[in-house]
């Protein structure tokens, strides 16, 4: 028997469905996957630059020393040589970019010292530590110590 065209209709329909399905997949994928996905790996390449965007809050030592070289010099001679400015003075990127408009607050000359130097059994033995209540019950540590070079003045 000679095959008729209608014998193939179901195959044509199936092929049509496949074409529609694959086209839909390609179009949806094109719409939903960002263009830079997969450029560098299984992720959006733009995410790397996104992670570079947040603003700085801590300016970094170099920015402080640029203006306050005198303090840096004093500090370099003492045991606080490796303590960064922003370790005690807090985040100062705003001050670094606008020195006159954004004045930093002076750190508390007792609490700031105690936050590192109060005695604690868990601290390494070689770290200089005191029991604040016995060492100096009250008052500013700066009354006896030069904070940027903590020798007894």
């Amino acid at each position: 028997m000679k095959p008729r065209a209608s014998d193939y209709v179901h195959l044509v329909r199936m092929a049509g469905l496949f074409v529609v399905g694959i086209t839909a997949f390609v179009v949806l994928r094109w719409l939903m996957v960002p263009a830079d996905f997969g450029v560098l790996g299984h992720y959006r390449a733009g995410a790397v630059t996104d992670n570079m965007q947040p603003p700085l809050v801590y300016a970094g030592q170099a920015a402080c020393v640029e203006c306050h070289a005198d303090v840096a010099e004093l500090r370099a001679k003492g045991r606080h040589v490796q303590v960064a400015c922003e370790s005690c003075h807090g985040a100062l990127a705003a001050h670094a970019s606008n020195p006159d408009g954004q004045k930093p607050v002076r750190p508390d000359p007792r609490k700031t010292c105690i936050s590192c130097h109060s005695a604690n059994i868990s601290k390494p033995k070689s770290f200089p530590q005191v029991v604040p209540e016995e060492h100096a019950p009250e008052g500013s540590c700066a009354a006896c110590h030069v904070v940027h070079n903590p020798k007894i003045s």
Binding site: Y58, G60, Q61, Q82, V83, A84, E86, S87, A91, F127
Partner: peptide, 12 residues
């Protein structure tokens, strides 16, 4: 720059 934690760690 270095990280905020490394920047501020007083004992290195």
């Amino acid at each position: 720059l270095t990280t905020a934690c490394c920047e501020t760690c007083p004992t290195g």
